[in-house]
Structures are given as C-alpha cells and as structure tokens.
C-alpha cells in the first residue's frame, strides 16, 4: 500500500512538474494539442475514403468500423500518453545513459515509464472520443450492463496489451540499438491492425492476431460483443471475454523479456 502511495506521489509530482513546464508556453501548447487532435482525425479520413467506395468492408459497416477504430484509438492514445516516450529509451542505451537508471533504487522499467508525460498527447484521446461519439450515434446497440462494462473496461485493458507489446518489442535495443525501428512494426503496426475487423486478413494472420500477437483482444473481440455480432469467421464465443486475461499474460511476458534484456545489458556492458 505504501508502495502504491509512493508511486502515485512520484507520478503526481512528475505530471505537475511537466504540466507547469509545458503550460509555460501557452500558445505553443495550444497549437500542439490542436495539432494532435487534427492528426487523429486525419487517420480517420482514410477510413472515410474507404467507405466512400464501398458499403461494407469484410461485412462491417462504417459505424461498426468506426467503433473498432475508436476503441483501438482510445487505448493507443492513452498508451502513447503514458509510455510513448519509451521510444527514447534506445537513445539512452546508445549514449550510455541507461546506467543512470541502474544506480537508482527503483526498477529500470518503472523509472522509464515515469520519466515523462507529454500533455499534448491528450489531443489524440479527444480525437478518438469524437470518433467514438460518431460511432455510437450511428449504431443501434442493445445496451445492457454487460456491454457498458465492456466498453469501459476494454480501454484500460487495451492499454495494458499495447503497453506490453511496446515494452517487449523495444527490448530489441538491448541487443542492437540500430535495429530498434523494428519495434514500430509491432507497436504502430499493432495499432493499425487493431483498427480493422480481423476477417480482412488472411487465415494465418487472423490466427496469429488471436493466439500469438494478441491484438484482436484490444478492440475486435470486445466490439463483437458490444455489437452483438456473430463472429464472421466462427471463432469461439468465450474469446470475447478473454481480454483481461490476455492483458495479464502480456504484461507478464513483457516484464520477463525486459528483465532478460537488462540482464544482457549488465553482462555485455552496453
């Protein structure tokens, strides 16, 4: 409990400090936030263009795809907000500054995650919320407690899944800082994948996204449940509720891979 309080105190201190520093430049900050809001809309433009040409994409309508996009977008926006700066970590290794984390009495991953907080990334959250509003306004969903709960729970669960993927793949920097760009294929790639119904993809990729690289659990399966849609490719029903478990498993894998990476760094000398 003490641990949690300390963590919250530290995080609050950090966020306050960052907010103060970033709000000092009011106009620049306003520009940046509007910039990120616009950016999250422009991503959606591609989907609108797609649906200007067809009525359905793999048997999903525009509002349905918008729901997928919004859920995935919200989860990713929060992930980016909280750990987006993890992309700077390979630079730390390259400059020899990762050592500075090892001499402090906290876990290295903990320190990295709490190292920064870019307020402007909230803009992406606003953009995703706008798309969500559009989706919900244009869908006739049979709302019940379960469906509402799913919508609420799925965003933090999605954050854990995305964050775990991010941490796991960025660990490649422990072995090769140069190769770090490969992690983009999984983090930003994963987000791209999660915006579309998985029946768009080939059979092998669908299975991959369900069983190995669990991106389908961020938005697709929960969306199936919320929409009350039968799975067009006939995957088992219980998968729709497996997201929290998947998140836990992903977090375990991420932390194990990270520890393995740190261990390698301590042997090889970085």
């Amino acid at each position: 409990m003490d641990e949690v309080r300390n963590l919250l105190a530290l995080y609050r201190r950090l966020i306050e400090a960052r907010l103060r520093a970033q709000l000092q430049y009011r106009t620049s900050f306003a520009l940046e936030i509007s910039g990120t809001v616009l950016i999250s809309f422009i991503d959606f433009v591609a989907i609108l263009v797609i649906f200007a040409n067809v009525q359905q994409l793999a048997q999903w309508t525009l509002p349905e795809v918008a729901l997928l996009y919004a859920i995935s977008g919200l989860a990713f926006a929060f992930t980016d907000l909280v750990i987006g700066h993890l992309d700077d970590f390979p630079g730390l290794i390259r400059d020899g500054n990762f050592d500075l984390l090892l001499i402090r009495p906290r876990g290295t991953l903990f320190q990295l995650l709490t190292a920064d907080f870019q307020v402007r990334r909230l803009g992406k959250v606003l953009g995703a919320l706008a798309v969500l509003a559009y989706a919900l306004a244009n869908l006739s969903i049979d709302w019940d407690l379960g469906r509402v709960a799913m919508l609420v729970v799925i965003v933090p669960v999605g954050v854990v899944i995305f964050a775990s993927i991010w941490v796991t793949t960025i660990c490649i920097a422990f072995w090769s800082v140069g190769a770090r760009e490969a992690s983009n294929a999984f983090t930003y790639g994963g987000q791209f994948l999660s915006q579309f119904p998985i029946n768009v993809y080939d059979q092998w990729l669908r299975r991959f996204l369900a069983y190995i690289f669990p991106i389908a659990f961020v938005a697709y399966f929960p969306a199936l449940f919320i929409l009350g849609k039968p799975d067009p490719i006939g995957l088992p029903d219980w998968l729709r509720f497996a997201s929290p478990l998947v998140a836990v498993a992903a977090a375990i894998v991420a932390s194990a891979v990270w520890r393995f990476g740190v261990r390698h760094y301590q042997s090889a000398g970085g």
């Binding site: 994409l57 140069g178 190769a179 770090r180 760009e181 790639g189 579309f196």
Partner: peptide, 24 residues
C-alpha cells in the same frame, strides 16, 4: 542494422495495408 530493421517494418506494414485495401 537500422536499414534492415526499417525494411522489415516496411514489409510488415505492406502485409497489413495490402490486406485492408484488397478487402475493398
């Protein structure tokens, strides 16, 4: 290493974009 990693990422994204656009 960076070039190889980049080419890998390009290919992965090609797979994904290809799937989505072909669905049209």
């Amino acid at each position: 290493a960076a070039t190889a990693a980049g080419a890998f990422t390009n290919i992965i994204f090609g797979l994904m974009r290809g799937s989505v656009l072909l669905a049209l």
